[in-house]
Structure formats: structure tokens, C-alpha cells
């Protein structure tokens, strides 16, 4: 098992950490200049208050949270049970396959680590997408939205490549329990990512039709909510399927 080392994983996460830190610092510096308390004239204040009132006037729900946001929170909670059942099935059948190939025969840790990194990176881009539309910056919104879309697409590309590679190695859906549970779990996640990618592309196109505005940033926010959820689920799946195979301490 000498092919499997923790090193690439640690390297990837370190690189990711550094990258995030750099971007966050850059972003913080950028905002620092904007957020200095400005002395506003009375007129300005009135205008801002009027704008606030206009935005909040229509949100007439009991909690003040928009319905659609609540919908997605509850849906994602329900989706947790969906993935929970799949992960349970995977864990129950872990090591129960009667014939190979077994996980370590086919996994390419470096490759999956890179695709994981890209998916996590896309979450960061999603934050920037939302933040730019909340500020009303449509240009930036399009840029980051497309970047997120590309990351998602790249992740899917990696997954397709990985599946092709596994099939080439002789691991099919019906080969053994590992194949069945692996393809079902990662495939379901892949479908979630694909839906997210379509959603991002839809928002990107919709922004050219004038459908994405500062006032409707909530529509981007819920897409972000979904996207982050899909990423978090991948972290769990990556840990359960891939990282647990690493011969740590054993």
C-alpha cells in the first residue's frame, strides 16, 4: 500500500487553506476601504431608510425570513436523511464485497483530492457570487457565477473520468457491493451537483435577461444554500469513502 500516502491530501488541504487565506485577506482589504464610517447627510440617511423600508415592506412573513429560504432549509434537512440512508448503506456494506476490485485497487487519491479541492473552491466562489449581487454589482456577479459553474462542471468532469477509469479497472455497478454502494452514493451526489450546475447556468443566463437584481438577491442566496450543502455532503462522502481507506495508524 505504499502508493497511498497522506501527503497529497495534506498538501492539497494546505494549498487550499493558503489559497482561501490569501483571497480572504484580499477581500477584507478591499472591503476595508468601503466600510469606513462615512458621514452621511440627513438626506442620505432618509434615502437609505426609505430604501430599507421598501425592501422590507414586502417581506410580511411571521418570522421575517422569506418563505423560499425556509423552504430550502427544510428541504435540505430532508435531503440529509436521503444522503444519510445512502451513507448508512455504504458503511454497512463496507468490506462485505465477496469479489474485487476493492476500494484500494481502484482509488486514485490524488485525483479525487484535486476534484474535492475544486468543489470546495467553488463554494468560496459562490460566496463571492452572492456578495456581489447583494451589492448590486451585476458584472462581478456574472464573473463569479460563471466561475462557480465552471468549478462544478470540472468536478463533474473529474467524476465522469473517475467512473470511466473504475469501469476500465473492472468495477461496475453490479460487480460487487462496493461497486453498487459506491456508484449509488457518489452518483446521487453527482446528480445533485449536476442540478446545481444547471441552476448556476440558468442564473447566469437569466442575469442577461434582467432577472437577477439586487432586490432579488434571495434567489441567488438559496442557490448558494443548496450549493454549499452539496459541498458539505461531499466532504462527508469524501471522508467516508476515500479517507477512511487510508491506512492511518494501521
Amino acid at each position: 500500500m505504499e502508493a497511498l500516502k497522506l501527503q497529497p491530501v495534506i498538501t492539497a488541504f494546505t494549498v487550499f487553506g493558503i489559497f482561501v487565506c490569501v483571497l480572504l485577506t484580499y477581500y477584507a482589504l478591499l472591503n476595508l476601504f468601503k466600510s469606513f464610517p462615512r458621514i452621511r447627510s440627513k438626506k442620505d440617511k432618509e434615502a437609505i431608510a426609505a430604501e430599507d423600508a421598501d425592501v422590507h415592506h414586502h417581506v410580511d412573513t411571521y418570522t421575517g425570513e422569506p418563505n423560499i429560504k425556509l423552504f430550502w432549509w427544510v428541504f435540505l434537512a430532508s435531503d440529509c436523511m436521503f444522503f444519510g440512508s445512502l451513507i448508512t448503506a455504504y458503511l454497512i456494506y463496507k468490506g462485505q464485497s465477496l469479489v474485487g476490485p476493492y476500494p484500494l485497487d481502484v482509488f486514485d487519491m490524488e485525483l479525487t483530492t484535486i476534484s474535492t479541492f475544486i468543489l470546495l473552491l467553488s463554494s468560496f466562489f459562490m460566496v463571492l457570487t452572492l456578495s456581489s449581487i447583494q451589492k448590486g454589482d451585476l458584472g462581478k456577479f456574472r464573473f463569479w457565477c460563471f466561475a462557480t459553474f465552471l468549478c462544478g462542471l470540472t468536478f463533474l468532469g473529474f467524476q465522469v473520468y473517475e467512473f470511466e477509469h473504475f469501469i476500465h479497472e473492472g468495477l461496475r455497478l453490479k460487480t460487487n457491493l462496493f461497486g453498487s454502494t459506491f456508484y449509488l452514493l457518489t452518483g446521487t451526489h453527482g446528480v445533485h451537483v449536476a442540478i446545481g450546475v444547471l441552476w448556476l447556468l440558468g442564473m447566469f443566463i437569466y442575469s442577461f435577461w434582467g432577472g437577477i437584481t439586487k432586490e432579488r438577491a434571495i434567489e441567488v442566496e438559496i442557490a448558494g444554500l443548496y450549493w454549499h450543502f452539496v459541498d458539505v455532503v461531499w466532504i462527508v462522502i469524501f471522508s467516508v469513502i476515500y479517507l477512511m481507506e487510508l491506512p492511518i495508524g494501521g
Binding site: D79, M81, S85, L86, A89, Y93, L177, T181, L184
Partner: peptide
């Protein structure tokens, strides 16, 4: 409903795959 139905949905999907796509859950 929101927390119980996803579980049966997964069970049904697995069963459907067992019947039609040759898996052996």
C-alpha cells in the same frame, strides 16, 4: 413526513436497482 420519506425513497431506489440493474443490495 419530511424526515421519514427520504429513507423509504432510498430503499425503493435500491430495490429498483436490484431488480433492474443487477445490483445485489
Amino acid at each position: 413526513l419530511a424526515f421519514a420519506l427520504p429513507v423509504i425513497t432510498i430503499a425503493l431506489i435500491i430495490l429498483f436497482m436490484d431488480r433492474n440493474y443487477g445490483t445485489t443490495f
